[in-house]
């Protein structure tokens, strides 16, 4: 499969987001809500940093990404177009990556729009740009992980609503996984639950601190969810 065919798939995915209202609605809601929370913090808390903005963004992304990811495979399956795509001369991995990259392009657009907040901070104050750039990289990794989970849930569902609900469920489960540690005190499971939890890793991220462990964690989540999606498509063939 050529790069041309792969880029065609990505363009098709992107176009499909914008021929339906879903991308417009999700982006608009994200920009409005993140802008509102940022303004609220600046006016009433007077913090000249982006930590609280990133915190709000991560929760908004957890809420909004399932709306974008739910259609990736579930809608194709519902419309029978997955049967068409999977009989084209493209591999399952290419299909999954194309859908993921298109989804990440939308997510990037959402985050870029929210960067207006940084411009406002720069105009009215003198923020430390290091943690802001680090924070954006972190929030992008968090969104990339959410998108991976969303894609995986969509690949196992035939219904978009079910796909979105499963994604929220999984994201919440991973977010609060560290709570599970208290159920098994003085056990290796404490270590396990703390390390699979989004909330444990994301606290460093939104402060702009990117440790090797955090980086490995998020890249592993992305990689595992995409590999699992490819496997699901293969299993469903047989």
């Amino acid at each position: 499969m050529s790069l041309y065919q792969f880029s065609t798939l990505i363009k098709h995915e992107l176009r499909y987001y914008f021929v339906t209202p879903i991308a417009y609605v999700v982006i608009a809601v994200f920009w409005s809500a993140s802008g509102f929370f940022f303004s609220f913090n600046q006016l009433f808390v007077s913090a000249i940093n982006m930590v609280s903005a990133f915190h709000n963004m991560s929760l908004l992304l957890m809420l909004m990404i399932p709306f974008l990811s739910m259609r990736t495979f579930a809608e194709e399956r519902q419309n029978n177009t997955l049967e068409l795509l999977m009989t084209l001369p493209i591999s399952e991995a290419a299909l999954v990556w194309a859908k993921y990259l298109a989804l990440m392009t939308i997510v990037l657009l959402m985050l870029l729009g929210s960067a207006v907040a940084v411009a406002i901070l720069s105009y009215f104050g003198d923020p430390d740009y290091g943690p802001i750039v680090g924070g954006y990289i972190g929030i992008f990794l968090l969104a990339a992980s959410f998108s991976g989970v969303g894609l995986l849930m969509s690949s196992i569902s035939t219904n978009q609503i079910v796909a979105a609900a499963l994604t929220w469920f999984c994201l919440l489960l991973l977010w609060f996984a560290d709570y599970g540690a208290s159920l098994f005190p003085s056990s290796w499971l404490v270590y396990f639950f703390q390390h699979i939890s989004f909330s444990v890793h994301y606290l460093d991220l939104i402060r702009g601190v990117l440790t090797r462990g955090t980086l490995i964690y998020f890249i592993s989540v992305i990689f595992l969810t995409l590999v699992a999606s490819v496997q699901i498509l293969r299993i469903k063939r047989s």
Partner: peptide
């Protein structure tokens, strides 16, 4: 291949749909 339930993208125009499939077929 034409499956039993015709696989179409309703929000696309006929020419867009065919162009997409031509391109993805190389």
């Amino acid at each position: 291949y034409l499956p039993e339930k015709v696989p179409l993208y309703d929000p696309l125009r006929v020419s867009e749909y065919l162009k997409f499939l031509a391109s993805v077929r190389g």
